[in-house]
Design a binder for these strands. Structure first.
Length: 552
RNA sequence: GCCCCGAUGGUGAAACGGAUAUCACAUCAGUCUUCGGAACUGACGGUCCAGGUUCGAUUCCUGGUCGGGGCACCA
């Protein structure tokens, strides 16, 4: 529908003599203005040297002719020169029927058809527990992945685990000190890491031992050590996989630091020979001066690669394993500066790889109250956090599966409702009080609509036909779903979809309170409307990765 | 010191350069509980400051204030 209007405006502008003016076609802020609005007349005014209103009047006339009464019942000029289009009843009914008929295909786009896209997110630190910061990256990464898939791309998910380096050495040191040869729980690893980390700061002797362990892992010749390392990593990853599953995420590729060191070292050494990197105090650095990025060490003076060199290696590894048209990396926003340096260096060594790589940053998750902190430490693990929220959801849902769905929905909604990149304040009690503007609010609206439909079908009979001349507001919201999904994908902004679905759920609740469906006027039409709402909400929540419980 | 990001009602957020700045929570006042009240309706209240660009600025530019993050051998 939007495309059709856009085309009609484009042709009208060509006739008016302003073929290249960019213009918008969007939902008006106030639905009372119409179903679509365009600023084309305002945009063209300067180019044509005419008053906006003159152009708007002409545009309105040609739009009426081009679209016809079956599509646009009303075209009006308003404000400084907007042209508002109100859809005809038949056009609205047609769009709603389409939502109902298309099923899971409703809302699918074609913007990324035929493209291969790889998305990296969640990046776990093996030997450390998953904390709530990873939760944000995982939830946002999954939603963005699904948005891209919804636009038609072939998509692969990958995650880049830290399994080598000083942090890992600290955990190994702790394990050895505690005499643990067969670690079995993530908690055990977390404790060992904390101990190693503390010892590293306070004891010069321990520091030396840990540094030596780090070198030994890179060398990989100490069989006993490598066995402990392998087991620890696996235990750690099992825990990550458990939480990923809980959050509805599965990775096609799990890459590790240790997979990328070789390539990273080689590429940086080659780059050194070409003058892309420089030697400095025994280390190999990338000089970012004059390029607006920080200067950073890529290879240390001990000839071990830093995270930066590993990221370079990873870019090559990804291309080798799953060649793509676009590569997206999602990390916390504290890494933005570091990533700029990596991309600048990559642009010098492999311009094509750098060109198609984009970095997206997510914000921090902060808790509204400190109550959730289950331990004395200030780090809250993702597992503890999810458990606490499920417990809260349990108050109203005895079924453990539903409590979990509600809790995951609440967490995801809180994270996805705001623009990625900004910090997130999570108030668990507020999001589970479930009054408007929450995941469960959307889930609840869907559950109620499904319930009505079930009862309507059981009742059977011949529902009253016909439809009111003026469409219900809910109909006019439903028809915008495909445009919203496409827009959210272009901007990598799941929050746009969240806002839309919240509005949709609110309008459905409003409709439900005002209008009698079973046994009411226009029952057949209202049933279709209910089905269209269910389909739209179901598909929308699926893109966000928010579970849809059958009952609540 | 340098670089990046942010600042919107009491609180948390939204708004391709567009119309009377949207939504929720809280507060206050109602609906009514005969398709599921985790609901619905209404009231209250806001763009950090000073300039600039523009027909039009929460949005873009300059300066300032406050807050967060980053800045070579950590990830």
């Amino acid at each position: 529908m939007e495309e059709r209007i856009r085309k009609a405006i484009g042709e009208a502008l060509i006739q008016a003599g302003a073929p290249t003016v960019p213009f918008s076609v969007e939902r008006p802020g106030d639905i009372a203005h119409g179903d679509y609005a365009t600023n084309a007349a305002l945009a063209a005014a300067k180019a044509l040297g005419k008053k906006p209103h003159e152009i708007a009047d002409e545009l309105a006339r040609s739009l009426i002719d081009a679209l016809g009464k079956d599509i646009a019942s009303h075209v009006a000029v308003a404000g400084p020169g907007f042209v508002n289009i109100t859809l005809a009843r038949e056009a609205v009914s047609l769009a709603v029927a389409e939502a109902d008929a298309k099923g899971t295909e409703w809302g699918k786009g074609t913007d990324e058809n035929g493209k291969r896209v790889i998305v990296e997110y969640s990046n776990p630190n093996a030997f450390k527990e998953m904390h709530i910061g990873h939760l944000v990256g995982t939830v946002v990464g999954e939603a963005i992945s699904r948005l891209i898939q919804n636009s038609g791309a072939m998509l692969a998910r990958d995650t880049f685990g830290g399994d080598i380096g000083p942090n890992v050495a600290k955990a190994l040191w702790g394990l050895r000190k505690n005499g643990v040869n067969e670690p079995t729980t993530a908690n055990e690893l977390g404790t060992a890491y904390t101990e190693g980390s503390n010892a590293y700061e306070t004891s010069p002797e321990a520091k030396g031992e840990i540094d030596a362990l780090n070198q030994a892992v890179y060398a990989g010749t100490d069989k006993e050590l490598m066995e402990l390392w392998r087991k620890g990593r696996e235990v750690s990853m099992e825990e990550f996989r458990r939480i990923w599953k809980l959050l509805g995420t599965h990775f096609d590729f799990e890459f590790f630091d240790s997979d990328t060191t070789e390539t990273g070292l080689r590429v940086v050494h080659d780059g050194l020979a070409k003058g892309i990197f420089q030697k400095s105090d025994g280390a190999i650095i990338y000089n970012g001066e004059g390029k607006g990025v920080h200067t950073m060490v890529f290879i240390t003076s001990h000839d071990t690669p830093t995270y930066e060199a590993k990221d370079i290696g990873l870019a090559f590894l990804k291309e080798e394993r799953w060649p793509s048209d676009k590569s997206i990396v999602i990390t916390g926003n504290e890494q933005t500066g570091r990533f700029k340096t990596v991309l600048a260096a990559l642009a010098d060594v492999a311009p094509l790889l750098a060109e198609k790589t984009a970095h997206l940053a997510t914000g921090f998750l902060k808790l509204a109250s400190g109550k959730m902190s289950s331990r004395e430490g200030n780090v809250i693990t993702a597992a503890d956090f999810i458990r606490e929220v499920i417990l809260l959801a349990n108050d109203k849902n005895t079924d453990p599966l539903i409590a979990e769905q509600v809790a995951i929905g609440a967490i995801k909604y809180m994270i996805l409702r705001q623009a990625p990149g900004s910090d997130i304040i999570f108030d668990a009690e507020k999001s589970l009080s479930l009054e408007g503007d929450s995941g469960p609010y959307l889930q609840y609206a869907l559950v109620r609509a499904k319930s009505v439909l079930t009862q309507a079908e059981e009742k059977g009979g011949a529902p009253a036909a016909g439809a009111p001349e003026t469409p219900y507001l809910i109909e006019r919201i439903i028809l915008h779903f495909p445009e919203v999904a496409a827009h959210a994908e272009r901007e990598f902004a799941p929050n746009l979809l969240v806002t839309y679905l919240t509005e949709l759920a609110g309008e459905w609740n409003s409709f439900y309170a005002k209008e009698r469906i079973i046994g009411g006027d226009y029952e057949a039409h209202k049933r279709m409307l209910a089905r269209a709402f269910v389909q739209t909400m179901t598909n929308g929540l699926a893109i966000l990765g928010v579970p849809t419980p059958e009952k609540m």
